[in-house]
Simulated scan of single mutants.
Amino acid sequence: VRTVVDLGGVTFMDSSGLGAIIATYRSAQDSNGWIRIAAPTEPVLRVMQIIGLDTIIDCYPSSEQALNAAEQ
């Protein structure tokens, strides 16, 4: 499982969205894959920082940067 989640258009995220990202992260870990977050808006990034999700899932300014970092 290799996933880039582009959050550039997301202005609000609650526990359901966070739960989906965490479930995807766990699934990726189980299959030796990865998940990257691209272009999180300030409100969404703040929520991710509050729960510490930004420390286990890498965040990038754009989808292109997330994809390029993942290829390395």
Rank of each mutant, 00 (worst) to 15 (best):
A69I: 09
I22A: 14
I51P: 02
A69Y: 10
Y60W: 12
D58R: 14
I37D: 10
S62Y: 10
P43W: 03
D58F: 06
R36P: 08
T41Y: 04
V47T: 08
E71A: 15
D54P: 02
A69R: 10
V4H: 06
N68Q: 15
M48G: 04
T11F: 10
V4D: 05
I56W: 08
T11K: 11
S15G: 02
N68P: 00
I56P: 06
Q72T: 13
S63I: 12
G17L: 00
G33H: 05
A70E: 11
P40F: 02
T24M: 13
D14H: 03
Q65V: 11
I37V: 14
E42Q: 13
P40M: 03
T55E: 14
A39H: 08
L45V: 02
C59N: 08
T3W: 09
D14K: 01
V1M: 15
M48P: 04
D6N: 12
A38E: 07
I37L: 15
N32T: 09
T41A: 06
Q29H: 09
P40S: 02
I51W: 01
N32Y: 11
Q72E: 13
S15F: 02
T11Y: 07
A38V: 08
N32V: 06
V44S: 01
A38G: 07
T41E: 10
G52R: 00
I51F: 04
N68I: 11
A20V: 07
R46I: 00
L67S: 10
L45C: 04
I51A: 03
T41R: 06
A38S: 07
G8F: 05
